[in-house]
């Protein structure tokens, strides 16, 4: 291997063969070193949550990745490949420029009976956010998620001062053996937490004046979105043998989990609350 080795010769064959071999080894080592360095850098930059979202996003079924413009009827079918990052989406910007979203009427019929006030912004992970007068934002879960989970057996809230990232973990619900991760709708530092009695769980101080909320659903998008989510839920709850038989004629119940204990709730939470 080396000229120091007994009987080694600098022959062409040796040079080509060992050259190729060491190049390969170098490439493999370089790949590992690069990966490690990048990992350390990302961890130091607190990018873990953002990366988790990126990683999870591509593992989600396409039904979970429907583009928001499908809800508004602009597309028949469109799957997001941009981690729901509408801020960086060219198509989104183009469509926004073409129309006035606010002008679109709320289609009340689309809402199957969930209370989703339009004074707040909704994330695709069924959390909402609303700005307080002091500039902080409160974050809670929407009626769909609340009814889906029902009464959680425990709530695992972040410590005060935790920095949240967009679509990063905000807090966890425990329901039985299952843990449910709730996505943070926006970026910020947790300044207060609550057990949800007041309807919210976290109060967050944005990190910059320019709070990014463009990716959140609002107004006319909310109804069709929640209808679609409810359809997916019903799909899961349907008895494969006798078809769809929901109590209350298809009206949402207070606690779906309690109502259908035999279902694979782990999988349902995973799909609907975007945690593959």
């Amino acid at each position: 291997m080396l000229s120091l080795v007994f009987a080694y010769a600098w022959s062409t064959g040796n040079i080509i063969f060992l050259g190729a071999f060491f190049t390969i080894v170098a490439i493999i080592v370089a790949t590992l070193v690069t990966t490690t360095l990048r990992t350390l850098r990302a961890l130091r930059a607190n990018a873990a949550e953002a990366i988790r979202w990126k990683s999870d996003f591509h593992d989600m079924p396409s039904s979970s990745r429907t583009c928001r413009h499908v809800f508004t009827g602009e597309f028949e079918r469109r799957v997001c490949n941009n981690e729901f990052n509408c801020n960086g989406c060219e198509q989104h910007a183009l469509l926004l420029a073409q129309q006035n979203a606010a002008a679109m009427p709320v289609n009340a019929q689309m809402n199957p009976g969930f209370a989703l006030p339009l004074d707040r912004l909704y994330s695709r992970g069924h959390t909402w956010t609303k700005q307080n007068t002091d500039g902080t934002y409160v974050i809670g879960v929407d009626d769909f998620a609340a009814r889906l989970i029902g009464t959680p057996s425990a709530i695992d809230l972040p410590a005060i001062g935790t920095r949240l990232s967009i679509n990063g973990s905000a807090w966890n619900f425990k329901k039985g053996e299952t843990s449910v991760r709730m996505l943070s709708p926006l970026e910020g530092e947790v300044v207060e937490t609550s057990d949800g009695a007041q309807g919210w769980y976290l109060r967050v101080q944005p990190l910059s004046a320019d709070v990014k909320t463009g990716h959140l659903l609002r107004g006319a998008e909310v109804g069709p979105w929640i209808q679609r989510e409810f359809d997916r839920l019903q799909n899961y709850l349907a008895d494969p043998k006798i078809g769809l038989t929901l109590p209350d004629g298809g009206m949402p119940v207070r606690d779906f989990t309690a109502e259908f204990p035999e279902k694979d709730w782990d999988a349902i939470y995973s799909t609907l609350l975007l945690e593959p």
């Binding site: 790949t31 690069t34 990966t35 490690t36 990048r38 990992t39 990302a42 961890l43 990018a47 873990a48 949550e49 990366i51 988790r52 990126k54 990683s55």
Partner: peptide, 11 residues
Amino acid sequence: VPSMLVFEFEL
């Protein structure tokens, strides 16, 4: 585990 996740992602 965040480090595992990030490592996987980078790899």
